[in-house]
Structures are given as structure tokens and as C-alpha cells.
Simulated scan of single mutants.
Amino acid sequence: MSKRILYLAMSLMLAFYAGAASAQQLSLAQISQYLNGLQTAQGGFTQINQDGTLSTGQIFIKRPGRIRFEYNPPNEALVLASGGQLAVFDPRSNVPPDRFPLNQTPLGIILQDNVNLGRERMVTNQTSDGTTTTITAQDPDNPQYGNIQLVFTANPIELRQWIVTDEFGTQTTVIMNDLVTGGSIRDQRFNIISEMRDRGF
């Protein structure tokens, strides 16, 4: 094979692999469509905290506006979002949960009724390694609330991980384990008032 033909063949191969890799990068429209179509989901999760400690548990999502993190022992904490509120239950405390407006937390970005990542200043970074697409999103009107970095795979599109950076710069990583979409999840799982009543508050 002549050098010219060999060079041409190598160029075509490189172009093919580059095209295959770039084809794995998801567009913001594709990611928005995936999130808007994600009505319910549940599975396991592993959480990496700011101090490097690990927590595990089960996650339940029911869009719009609802999410539940059940932590395994010895943690046994509970985080609930519904009714526009995010509540953090600490089993070591005898006081009611800390509550925050959901739209003032980065999680509110993916739980809102209509996710539109194409909004100006919402996505501040987007990268792809040929296998995953990572975006960093914030509330474009209130960037001081922090941001959420989301990692997706393609074919099919799946949310695999996120990193929440809150208003104080604290980072929390959540890695999904066997997230199953679809199916029925009772609204009661996300009822903050009912959970408070069950815990004697």
C-alpha cells in the first residue's frame, strides 16, 4: 500500500471515530426533552459528601417538584421535596426538619415543570468525553443559589450522576445505581407534613 493511500485510509478512520465520539454528545434540547419526559424514577444512590464521607440509600423522583432520598443506616436521614419545599429530616435531632424553598436550591432546576436548558445563562458549561455528556446548570436569574452538574449517557439517554454546589460552595455528589424510570410512586412518599406528623412534630 502506498504512503498516500495509507494516509488517506488513516484520515478516514480518524474522521469516522471522531464523528462517532461527537455523535455521543447530547444537545441541550435532547437533555431537556429527556428530563421533561422523566415523570417517575427510582433506584439506589451513593452520595459523596464534601468531607469525603459516603452515604447510600434509595431515591424516588416524581416530576414535577418531588424527590425523596432515603438514607441507609447508620445515617437514616431523609430528604423530601414537595409543595415547593425541600425538607431535611435529621434522625439525631428532636426538632422539626429544616425547610427551604425548592426553587432556591439547584435541585429545583431539574424538578421544575418545564426544563428548558436552552435559556440564556442557564447552562454555563457543557463537555463530552465521547461516552458521557456533562452540563453545569444554574438559575439564570439567581446564580447565587448555586449550580448542578449533570452527567448523562446516550443510547439511551440516562441520568447517571449529579454534583450539587450550594450557595456556600459546598459540593455533594450523587451517583445513581440502577435508576428505573416509569412506574407508579405514591404521592404519600413525598408528603412533608405527613412525615412530620409520623415523627411526632
Rank of each mutant, 00 (worst) to 15 (best):
E70H: 08
I135V: 15
N155W: 06
N155E: 12
F152N: 14
R63M: 04
P73L: 01
P96H: 02
I109R: 05
D129L: 09
G43W: 00
S55L: 08
M176E: 01
Y34M: 08
L111W: 12
M1P: 06
M176K: 08
Q161L: 04
I192T: 01
Q161A: 10
A87Y: 00
I135Q: 07
T132M: 02
T133A: 05
Q171I: 14
P143C: 14
I185Q: 01
T105S: 04
G57W: 07
S55R: 14
M176F: 12
D90E: 10
T127Y: 08
E120L: 13
G169I: 13
L117P: 05
L14Q: 02
L12R: 02
E158G: 02
Q25E: 15
V164M: 03
L38K: 10
G19N: 15
T132R: 13
T172V: 08
L107D: 11
I148C: 07
L26E: 14
A81F: 00
D187V: 04
S184E: 02
D187C: 04
P73H: 06
M1L: 08
Q50C: 09
I48P: 05
N142T: 06
R197S: 07
Q188S: 15
P101I: 09
Q171C: 13
Q149P: 05
T153V: 12
L14R: 05
I185V: 10
K3D: 15
R119S: 09
I135G: 10
A29Y: 06
Q24G: 06
Q50P: 06
F190W: 06
N94C: 00
Q126H: 01
I61G: 00
M176G: 07
N49G: 09
T153A: 07
A87S: 02
Q42Y: 05
L111M: 12
N114L: 04
F201L: 01
A20G: 05
V79A: 06
V115N: 03
N75R: 14
Y34G: 03
L159I: 07
A18C: 13
M196D: 08
S93R: 12
V151C: 11
L35K: 12
R63W: 11
Y71K: 08
F152H: 12
T165V: 09
G43I: 01
L28G: 06
N191Q: 06
P64F: 15
Q39I: 06
V164T: 10
A29W: 10
I48C: 09
G200F: 07
I67F: 01
N94W: 08
V174K: 00
P101H: 06
N125A: 15
N103H: 00
F60N: 11
S27Y: 13
N147T: 11
D198F: 08
G83Q: 00
A137E: 07
N94L: 05
D129G: 10
V151R: 13
V180S: 00
N114G: 00
Q161D: 12
I157F: 09
L54Q: 06
I31W: 10
Q30G: 11
S27G: 13
T132F: 04
A15R: 12
R119K: 15
L78C: 08
R160Y: 00
P96T: 03
N75E: 01
A77G: 05
T105I: 02
R66K: 14
S93V: 05
N125G: 13
P97E: 02
T131G: 11
D141F: 10
G200V: 01
G83W: 06
R197E: 05
V180R: 12
S128Q: 09
F190H: 10
M176L: 09
V123K: 11
G19M: 11
L28C: 12
P143S: 15
L35R: 04
